[in-house]
């Protein structure tokens, strides 16, 4: 079935099925961390997660119908936001901790060993606290993640050719489906109409914070790379370069 004819319930169940499996860092962490060892663990994990993120995106109904150019742009724009939202979701029941993976958990204070990362950890922890206060549900989380992906590029490119315009229209219809799905997920929580509207507002407003932290994180990673603290390679390098070379 095409996403435009799917019920919100069906759409959500498809994006729930698309969720990537739990991922492990699978490294012997030598504590205390050094700046280099922590950055290496963070980037190794990110690189593994990125591969799974591409498979995830391809399973979102309608994503593969967009032009390949749009698919590439969307992923290049939003990858760190998606990683960060996933991190927040894993950490939501662990106040003061960042659960990067089941075998890689950090306390806020451990951020001290990497120059400039504590500020980012604090922003990640603050956004995670907001999700905790809101008691974010899994259905809402998967919708927000799809929204980040599909919304990431909307205001940075304007379609020129007929093909680009067609893909842009598909993208907008797909965003409609995701918004409908989120509204449906919220409507299942037994709230008053007004409370539902407020919840929708609060959840979507959090996305602007995630974009902000992602921008900070991107700057931080590119600084770490430039200073040769960490070797960024492979897919992560490609994704980072897309945000910094311009």
């Amino acid at each position: 079935t095409h996403h435009s004819t799917m019920s919100p319930e069906e759409f959500i169940s498809r994006i729930m099925e698309a969720e990537p499996p739990e991922i492990y860092l699978m490294e012997d962490l030598k504590k205390p961390f050094t700046e280099a060892s922590m950055m290496m663990s963070l980037t190794n994990l990110a690189d593994k997660e990125l591969v799974l993120m591409i498979s995830w995106a391809k399973k979102i109904p309608g994503f593969l119908e967009l032009s390949l150019t749009d698919q590439i742009h969307l992923l290049k724009c939003c990858w760190l936001e998606i990683l960060m939202l996933g991190l927040m979701w894993r950490s939501v029941d662990h106040p003061g901790k960042l659960i990067f993976s089941p075998d890689f958990k950090l306390n806020r204070e451990e951020g001290q060993c990497v120059e400039g990362i504590m500020e980012i950890f604090d922003m990640l922890l603050a956004a995670t606290s907001r999700f905790r206060e809101l008691k974010l549900q899994r259905e809402e989380y998967v919708c927000l993640k799809a929204m980040i992906l599909l919304n990431s590029n909307l205001c940075t490119s304007s379609p020129q050719t007929a093909e680009e315009l067609e893909s842009r229209n598909k993208l907008l219809r797909l965003l409609d489906s995701v918004i409908d799905a989120l509204v449906w997920a919220i409507s299942k929580l037994g709230l008053s109409t007004q409370q539902q509207t407020l919840r929708l507002g609060h959840l979507t407003m959090l996305l602007s914070h995630i974009r902000h932290v992602s921008n900070k994180g991107m700057d931080h990673l590119s600084t770490m790379k430039r200073k040769n603290v960490v070797l960024v390679y492979d897919l992560l390098l490609e994704m980072l370069d897309a945000n910094t070379s311009s």
Partner: peptide, 13 residues
């Protein structure tokens, strides 16, 4: 071919 392009265009398992 970039890795991203390669991952996007390979058929799902």
């Amino acid at each position: 071919h970039t890795k991203l392009l390669q991952l996007l265009t390979t058929k799902p398992e």
